[in-house]
Nucleic acid binder design. Sequence first.
DNA 1: TATGAATGAGGATTCATTCAT
DNA 2: AATGAATGAATCCTCATTCAT
Lengths: 191, 191, 191, 191
Amino acid sequence: MPKVGMEPIRRRQLIEATIASMGERGLADTTVQTISRGAGVSPGIIHHYFGGKDELLAATMRSMLEQLRADVTERLAAAGSPRARLEAIIDCNFAEAQFDPRVVSAWLGFWAQSPHNPALARLQRINARRLHSNLRHSLRALLPLERAERVASGLAAMIDGLWLRSALTGAMDGREARAVALSYLDAELNA
Amino acid sequence: MPKVGMEPIRRRQLIEATIASMGERGLADTTVQTISRGAGVSPGIIHHYFGGKDELLAATMRSMLEQLRADVTERLAAAGSPRARLEAIIDCNFAEAQFDPRVVSAWLGFWAQSPHNPALARLQRINARRLHSNLRHSLRALLPLERAERVASGLAAMIDGLWLRSALTGAMDGREARAVALSYLDAELNA
Amino acid sequence: MPKVGMEPIRRRQLIEATIASMGERGLADTTVQTISRGAGVSPGIIHHYFGGKDELLAATMRSMLEQLRADVTERLAAAGSPRARLEAIIDCNFAEAQFDPRVVSAWLGFWAQSPHNPALARLQRINARRLHSNLRHSLRALLPLERAERVASGLAAMIDGLWLRSALTGAMDGREARAVALSYLDAELNA
Amino acid sequence: MPKVGMEPIRRRQLIEATIASMGERGLADTTVQTISRGAGVSPGIIHHYFGGKDELLAATMRSMLEQLRADVTERLAAAGSPRARLEAIIDCNFAEAQFDPRVVSAWLGFWAQSPHNPALARLQRINARRLHSNLRHSLRALLPLERAERVASGLAAMIDGLWLRSALTGAMDGREARAVALSYLDAELNA
DNA sequence: TATGAATGAGGATTCATTCAT
DNA sequence: AATGAATGAATCCTCATTCAT
């Protein structure tokens, strides 16, 4: 048991345990105890490192958003055309790491809570804007303004909807989801 | 002051109050007290009529599903063509009553909880299947099997995603949502 | 176990139990549990009737102040002369009910806490002003202004000091305390 | 960086920080953390030097008592007459260092706690006896036994009461307090 | 000597549920 | 039918204390 420089390790451990607990039990039944037990530490440590449950939840959501953002940024950098950029965004959202049932289930919990929690709402808003803006920017090169706006909204909604349905029914994997979204994109682009 | 025949009135009152509380505070902060206070009755009455909070929540979800089902059934009966049937389904989902912020917010709460609650999960599954089956049935008349399947999945996901986004951002009304979904449908049908 | 109209009964029970616990253990070790156990009820009832521990403590202090105020008011009404009024005030403060070790010990706890708790500080201030004003008013009839002020401050301090010493050492009863205070008063009046 | 001879420095630092925290927050909200933070050291150090919080509190009270005792002893040595000795005692108790709001507030905390803590009670008792004995000894030269006893009790009570009122209301400085006490003394001596 | 990571007991509070009236 | 008094388990959080470094 090392006793120095534990902070980043413990923070990561606790965030992972939070995602795991939310995936298993849902946000409603995720307590300081389920998290700390999952991380193999004492409940008090959460307050030591995060000040409280709320801040740990916000940190967890931030971490998930950051992961997604980093993935998208990396893939976008390698994409040459607008079409390729759109595909990259879709790919990232349905990549294995993001489509992990526990992660999607955690998202579900945050979605339900964020309208009633300013800290989460803020993160939610930032993420929604970024996705919409990424999509619109690429679509602008391929469609007239009004249709670009509409398809951006539609694609963003469909991505969330596919995540949602995968969390609720478990009957859809990332490959299928990707195919559905790409089919929509192509249909709109060729219309 | 004995009352007879109060049962259906009280049940409806309590279900409405549950939706209202979920819309205002979210499922997590909806307690027997917030519900009963909203309905203007005592907390004990919930157990009298529903046996407990869980059963009231399930009854509320059932009521919301039933409302949606009834709307769709009615509209479908009046629809002459497959295209009209698809439009009717979309219209129902974005009609004012279903797109009410409190209702959508309540849906969000149920979505988050249902993976961890068998009773809600069952209702969730029935609803998902019905929507998917309705969509697929009409699409089968217009598209080859595989594409019908895919578009059914896509439309179902998009409908849920548009609901979700409206709950999270509040920045979309039913008319816009309807336009986005119809655009998708037409693009796929004309592809 | 009657089930209606319990509010005033329970409130009184809980206030008495609070004084008892503060007398036995001090404010620092008085918990919701020691109080509720002392009252023979469950801990949750405190929140039912008082909303929380803080409000129960404030209600307890209010109750003690009110008791003292009522005693003094009654005795003052029967006092004919300024001298008799001063004696009445002293008598009340060292009467058996007010000099009860548990009550004095509770005062000690409130004194220590009130500089750091606005609600208690307010009550404290009101009480201090009333005592001082009662003393000064009667002394004005017997002494010049400046000396009346000074003796009022001295008598008020001595009353509190005698309470304090009785709580700390237990080596002084009300009769003795009364004699000390009256001796002071007479010495100043005859000076 | 090994340090030697840190013990007396650290002990003093921690005692000062304890008084400061008790003055600011009261004993109830004085924790090992507020103290160590105030002293600019880690929480563990308290146990290193004092073995625990309780012993630090006792050491703090001892330190305050010792300071008062040393002041009084010094002033008494320079006092020629019984009257001068009494004045010296009063002066010490209302000298600036002892009448410091933080110090008085700390006293308040100890007073409230000592009836329920044997270590503090013992210190409390020693101090009370010393004050009473000093007063009585000088008064014996000026008054008959019984009155000397009574005035000693009265003066001791008044001193504590003036401290108490200054802590509670903040509306009295040392000079005023001194005048009130001396007025009492003179009145009794001249009676 | 000194740190701060870690624990776990104990605190106030919330809440679904029961039940006498 | 309806109330609201009452319970007690569960939750988040605080805190003195321990201990590896």
